[in-house]
Design a protein around this nucleic acid. Structure first.
Lengths: 237, 237
DNA sequence: CAGTCTATCTATCATTTGATAGGCTGGGCG
DNA sequence: CGCCCAGCCTATCAAATGATAGATAGACTG
């Protein structure tokens, strides 16, 4: 449980580490950051149990025990990545849900904002996909966060259906579709396909078309969503 | 179709069943079969590297070394499950693609047929989701099968867009959405949500609504798909 | 009954893996 | 200069894990 001393130099990527920086601050050299980056890649591809600390260390270019100077355990690395992914997502979605707008606009803004965030992240974040990691009992907190996110999404879809803005249908299934698509979002970044061919809007459009009772309403929804979008980004709150 | 690859070990059923044939199969509530069932559950939840042979054995109720009487390696267990999942999927989709029908109807039939198959499978199949396993170099064959399936889906979407049946949009993204949703299909079965509330049709409807240029065409597409559906099931070929 | 084959067991091995112990180094600073 | 200590290293451990060896029980066969 090493206390970390905060000295003046803070990394460029500032918004990770969840800003409750009692123990977590930033290391002067980026080794710690590089560990997170490389670990996120390996974890995303090989899974938690399929990634060894030796592989992570090799990717960073340090010896395996050196990892444990920066992180107390292997799990702590994963935890930090999960926090980075899930906390802003849940917080942003909560702000959206409480906003004054139509469910469709909120959902559009969420999808758009979330994909933007994932694609722009320095890490390879596929938290949503890693049931493997989440299932680990010691990471139950993050399981809760995922459930929270899914529940919020679900309630958004439900209220859209109740107001008649969305077509009737299995709201649970629809929520799963949203969650499943987001889980692939970083694949977009990895394949660097999205960077040139596609926009977050395309994904949101795809989802909304499948939900909206009146397809022609899409343009209006998009406009409303653009107004909501800053709400999703914690930096602008 | 004797695709059993290995080995010296042949099950009792194979040897003496020259006459009473194929359909059924099954059932000596075979240990081998129970291994596959329990392994599929564990692999789906914990991933390949997160599942130990001891856990599988314990779930089946046998000792850990007894596993190796039925399968040469741990990997062989995963391989058999992958084969069971991917071979019929790719074969079915290939038959659909070559059929004489609209891309929309083919896609509808594929989603519907695939989800039905997954939900009814004795195994917990999430092959699509397990990049973790697939990434393992020794399982490159299955990586290929997944890519094949994705490519076929993609070409279906492309041709639908070219014919004007589908709205324009990023076909790659749309294909990812289909793939991502299918990856969750067995979650439907697990949560036994789909068994009461939802049908495979709901999922296909959701996808098709997001793709069709003319939403009103959905009913016609569904009717055409119902005709195609038997084509997807290898038993009916 | 003796022989064989299936299916399982206990005991054990070699490797991998997360983590610890302790030493070396170089830069900041009184 | 001499001390400190962040940061990294080598060497190594203990546990977990995939897999093997060999024995045993039971069923069927000749």
């Amino acid at each position: 449980m090493g206390l970390r001393i905060d000295n003046g130099i803070r990394s460029v990527v500032d918004m990770n580490s969840t800003e409750n920086d009692e123990t977590t601050a930033v290391d002067p050299p980026d080794t710690r950051e590089r560990i997170l980056i490389e670990a996120s890649r390996l974890l995303a591809v090989n899974g938690y149990h399929g990634t060894t600390t030796r592989e992570i260390a090799a990717a960073v270019g340090i010896s395996q025990p050196s990892l444990f100077f920066h992180f107390p355990t292997k799990r702590a690395i994963a935890e930090e990545l999960y926090k980075h992914d899930l906390l802003p997502a849940v917080a942003g979605l909560e702000r959206l849900v409480e906003a004054d707008a139509s469910p469709a606009a909120k959902l559009y803004a969420m999808i758009c904002g979330e994909i933007t965030r994932i694609v722009n992240s320095p890490y390879d974040m596929r938290a949503h996909i890693s049931y493997e990691v989440l299932n680990d009992p010691d990471l139950a907190l993050f399981q809760d966060l995922v459930n929270q996110f899914d529940d919020l999404t679900h309630s958004l879809i439900r209220s859209g259906q109740e107001s008649g803005e969305f077509a009737e249908g299995d709201s649970w299934l629809a929520q799963q579709m949203v969650s499943a698509l987001l889980a692939r979002a970083n694949l977009f970044a990895t394949t660097d396909h999205l960077k040139r061919h596609s926009h977050p809007d395309e994904a949101a459009t795809l989802i909304l078309r499948s939900l909206l009772a009146e397809p022609d309403a899409l343009e209006g929804v998009r406009r409303d969503a653009m107004v909501l979008l800053p709400l999703y980004d914690e930096r602008s709150v």
